[in-house]
């Protein structure tokens, strides 16, 4: 740490190198463009794949993201890291595509929600326990892919909220703004998305009766 800035030298070097990259990008430096794409593209594609189930759409979203970023480079105020800024752009690009897609009727989620009798008790009684906590289940190699496949089965509007809140870790307000809905709508959809995901995961993780 230096007494002047209070910022560790390594972090200052990184900030400096990012400022230099942004300057070069603003000047239209093609090598800088390529560096940006190679440095951040893989991570952005991973994000796009979570939102958009089709590989081609995910790649298109990444392309849109970079083109938007190049166009808006002069307006990037560097208050956040480039990676954070690009991440926000690609998420918005994905959400725009999902909104366009939602003109088609969406699969209902009700069948994945818990069912209740007239007196308010659960229809399914008792609820089966699972084979362990999340930590225990994650020790198995296949668990993450099982969970990802289940998330992919959720209807788009519910999957988007789950991804924004639980995976991308946006706040309720940020998610609401991204989706163009109220904070209350986000809360309701998130709860339903989690309940539906729980239903989808139960057959894979429930404790089997021992003899």
């Amino acid at each position: 740490m230096t007494p002047d800035t209070g910022i560790p030298a390594g972090a200052r070097d990184e900030q400096g190198s990012e400022r230099d990259l942004v300057s070069r990008l603003r000047r239209g430096d093609e090598d800088a463009f390529e560096h940006l794409v190679r440095e951040h593209g893989g991570r952005l594609l991973a994000v796009a794949r979570r939102f958009l189930r089709e590989e081609e759409e995910a790649r298109d979203a990444v392309q849109e993201c970079f083109l938007s970023a190049f166009r808006a480079m002069d307006r990037f105020d560097q208050a956040s890291r480039l990676s954070t800024w690009l991440h926000r752009i690609v998420v918005n690009a994905c959400l725009m595509r999902l909104r366009t897609r939602r003109r088609k009727p969406e699969e209902p989620i009700d069948e994945f929600l818990p069912q209740f009798q007239a007196d308010g008790h659960q229809v399914r009684h008792p609820t089966p326990e699972w084979e362990g906590s999340a930590e225990t289940l994650l020790a198995r190699r296949e668990t993450r892919s099982i969970v990802r496949e289940a998330i992919d089965r959720l209807p788009d509007s519910y999957r988007a909220v789950l991804l924004l809140r639980d995976i991308e870790e946006l706040s309720t307000e940020e998610a609401a703004q991204s989706l163009g809905v109220t904070a209350n709508a986000v809360k309701i959809r998130l709860h339903r998305a989690r309940q539906a995901l729980r239903t989808l995961l139960e057959p894979r993780f429930r404790r089997t009766a021992s003899c």
């Binding site: 609820t127 969970v147 639980d166 995976i167 989690r194 309940q195 139960e202």
Partner: peptide, 30 residues
């Protein structure tokens, strides 16, 4: 029943949060 539902609901949230953290698989290449 509800206690079990709550445990499995919490496990679901924790599993979702970990689902895309790729430990062994390395980073995605463009």
């Amino acid at each position: 029943s509800c206690a079990a539902y709550r445990r499995t609901y919490r496990a679901t949230v924790d599993l979702a949060r970990e689902a895309y953290r790729a430990p062994e698989s390395g980073r995605t290449e463009l």
